[in-house]
């Protein structure tokens, strides 16, 4: 059964925060990150791009992200929410204080993304990557079938990344990168065009990084809607957004560091209207 709730696309908020840019890992190098990503929202962008309330919904992902250099040009990547929790609050009458609709929660693995990135040009870094989104999460659970840790569909995304790094002054480095991608979705979901722009500045001999991002998803709106879908069950499609995000990463040793990030949407349709947060630590063999 095909279902996608508001939170479906929210998983991609987390996904976008792990984009590795056009730079491949050197052969045998590993970048590894464990993070906690969460989002709690009680309002959402409607199909008109306006904001309406909804029952408070939370999504927490404990995630591993790893890049490994298979060759000097080919990098394998995995993004795996090992523990994903989705809950909704109780709805309580403000008059009688009685519970109208009891809250529910599920815990499960989320949808796993695996990808291969190939560096076309290393002088001016350009890479292409293919990401496979595996429906390993739960697409519907709970008494209303409204809880999920994944979107229940197998998608394939082709992406091109480009970027450049440079020194601004002694001890201060910078980089920028951009990407565009096409996400081919199955099970009646609309295909998507994805894009993003990222810039970062480093301080303290590259030990502290401050990163800013803009990401976007535009739905081609070529999938099914509640009107065309044969089932009358919960089904939503055509979600899209433009989001901004910021991240701070601090190397506490040569290779190990902590990071914290936040992302939120400038605009959106059928998506949460609240910021998401992430904290984690990483191990970077390239240093």
């Amino acid at each position: 059964m095909k279902k996608l709730l508001f939170i479906g696309i929210l998983l991609s908020f987390g996904f976008s925060l792990h984009a590795g840019g056009p730079w491949p890992q050197k052969k045998g190098n590993l970048y590894f990150k464990v993070s906690e990503w969460w989002l709690v929202f009680n309002q959402h962008y409607t199909d008109q791009g306006l904001i309406d309330p909804n029952v408070t919904t939370g999504l927490y992902n404990t995630t591993i992200y790893a890049e490994y250099g298979l060759t000097n040009r080919l990098t394998g990547t995995i993004y795996a929410p090992l523990l994903s929790r989705n809950y909704m609050n109780n709805l309580v009458s403000n008059t009688t204080k009685e519970v109208i609709v009891p809250g529910e929660a599920i815990n499960n693995i989320g949808d796993v993304d695996i990808s291969l990135k190939y560096a076309i040009n290393k002088k001016f870094p350009v890479s292409i990557s293919l990401t496979l989104g595996l429906p390993t999460g739960i697409a519907s659970a709970g008494s209303q079938q409204n809880l999920q840790t994944g979107d229940g569909e197998f998608n394939q995304m082709l992406q091109i990344d480009a970027g450049q790094g440079f020194n601004l002054s002694k001890g201060v480095s910078a980089y920028f990168s951009t990407y565009g991608g096409f996400n081919n979705r199955s099970n009646g979901f609309s295909d998507e065009v994805r894009y993003g722009l990222e810039g970062g500045l480093s301080f303290i001999k590259n030990r502290l990084w401050i990163i800013g991002r803009v990401n976007g998803v535009e739905s081609l709106k070529n999938g099914e809607t509640a009107e065309t879908f044969s089932s009358t069950s919960i089904f939503s499609n055509n979600s899209e957004y433009t989001s901004y995000g910021a991240e701070v990463a601090l190397y506490v040793t040569k290779r190990v560091g902590f990071s914290a990030s936040v992302a939120s949407a400038f605009r959106g349709e059928i998506i949460a209207a609240a910021p998401s947060y992430s904290v984690g630590f990483f191990y970077d063999m390239s240093k």
């Binding site: 464990v34 969460w38 408070t56 927490y60 609050n89 109780n90 709805l91 309580v92 403000n94 809250g103």
Partner: peptide, 26 residues
């Protein structure tokens, strides 16, 4: 230890199903 702390934080933060109040008076 760090992984354990993250896991505990996640469970603590995510464990709570709260209450949303509906203004249902007529």
């Amino acid at each position: 230890n760090i992984f354990g702390i993250l896991l505990v934080c996640m469970l603590m933060l995510g464990a709570c199903i709260g209450d949303d109040f509906v203004d249902d008076r007529v």
